[in-house]
Design a binder for these strands. Structure first.
Lengths: 206, 206
DNA sequence: TAGATTGTTAATCGATTAACAATC
DNA sequence: TAGATTGTTAATCGATTAACAATC
């Protein structure tokens, strides 16, 4: 079944996947209640999300764990591997390059690039920083699917332009800037200062 | 005015603040239209969010830029400084310790702690990694307001427990785990793998 | 006055969840 | 059969936005 899956549902799928991963290895079936508790959501939500995906459980029993995991992996496109380029060889870029969590899900960092000639050639976690002039060639030759922007804010838009014109259609933006991209390109933003500021909003009013 | 401000509004305030920062320095007033364009939201949204905060503009003219910035900073509690402890001295923890963006908004990283004795004593960006056994002392002595969890998933819950029992009431969690905290404690989660998986959902269906 | 822009209402939209018949 | 749990409806909740009178 391929109906329109709401964005909110999509963003919960990785959470369900992780919840299922934390189940005892010998557990064959699981109830929506249990997934809900592990994922921190409502059980009706779980059932509804799964029904969007066309996953069927068994009344009185629950869902088959292995089949459910496989369904979620397929829905998220995690049955193949994705080449990732990180733009920005600063601390954040290097941390992301080293981040072990990516490999678990089939994300392979194929390059870290930077505009600063002084950074080019440095090696972190087995990846040599290359010059950003090579970006277009790298994207084409290494079949890059995802670009991660880990540059200062002022460089973000230009980097996004170069990534998209090179053919990248998925961008994860860590720079504290709103970037414009052509339609059809998907951007997600992770802004560390914003997260902290939201915390302080609640904090400073006791 | 202090009515109930919706969570969605709160999470947009930092974005407005940044939008205003990117205005030309000599611009005295701004219209909701302009803020909206810079922030990537609807202009009615901007006006409504600001009215929640009790900010008044002038019909026909717009909002006073300086006054608006000051209002937003006060609303977010950014008029004072906050001590931050980073738990986890791995790549991510160090990247966060080095992240210059925090200082701009008054966040001061007062410690990086780790459970691994081999990491203790290492210095990154002027901060010496301390042992996690010192966490409670550090929180008390350095008046820590915010804890950042940058550990593996398996350690996240225990770290959260220690942070909260030491008195920390705001947590930013980078570990791929859902953590339980007492009511009154605020947790925000940033999950890098989840972000990438959401991108691939859209990517793999052309 | 004419033009611009706010502040707010009311409509819309979309997401969450309680509830329960269906059924294993 | 009795108990458990799904799948789905309908109600609720909350957030977004078009529209426009108020007014600078």
């Amino acid at each position: 079944m391929r109906t329109i899956v709401p964005g909110a549902t999509v963003s919960r799928l990785p959470v369900y996947l992780r919840a299922l991963g934390s189940l005892p290895g010998d557990q064959r079936t699981c109830a929506s209640d249990q997934v809900a508790a592990l994922a921190g959501v409502n059980s009706a939500q779980v059932r509804k999300d799964l029904s969007y995906l066309g996953v069927n459980g068994t009344r009185g029993i629950g869902y088959d764990v292995a089949a459910l995991i496989e369904h979620l992996r397929r829905a998220l496109g995690l049955t193949k591997s994705y080449a990732v380029v990180i733009v920005g060889g600063g601390n954040l870029g290097n941390a992301l390059g080293n981040y072990g969590g990516f490999a678990t899900w089939g994300f392979v960092v194929v390059a870290v690039v930077d505009a600063d000639p002084a950074k080019v050639g440095q090696v972190a976690a087995g990846i040599r920083v290359e010059h950003i002039d090579q970006l277009e060639r790298i994207v084409a030759e290494r079949d890059v699917a995802i670009g991660i922007i880990a540059t200062p804010a002022r460089a973000a838009q230009e980097v996004a332009d170069r990534l998209t014109s090179a053919g990248v259609r998925s961008i994860l933006n860590f720079a504290p800037a709103v970037i414009e991209v052509p339609s059809g390109v998907d951007v997600r933003r992770v802004d560390l200062s914003t997260e902290l500021q939201i915390l302080t909003y609640h904090l400073h009013r006791h």
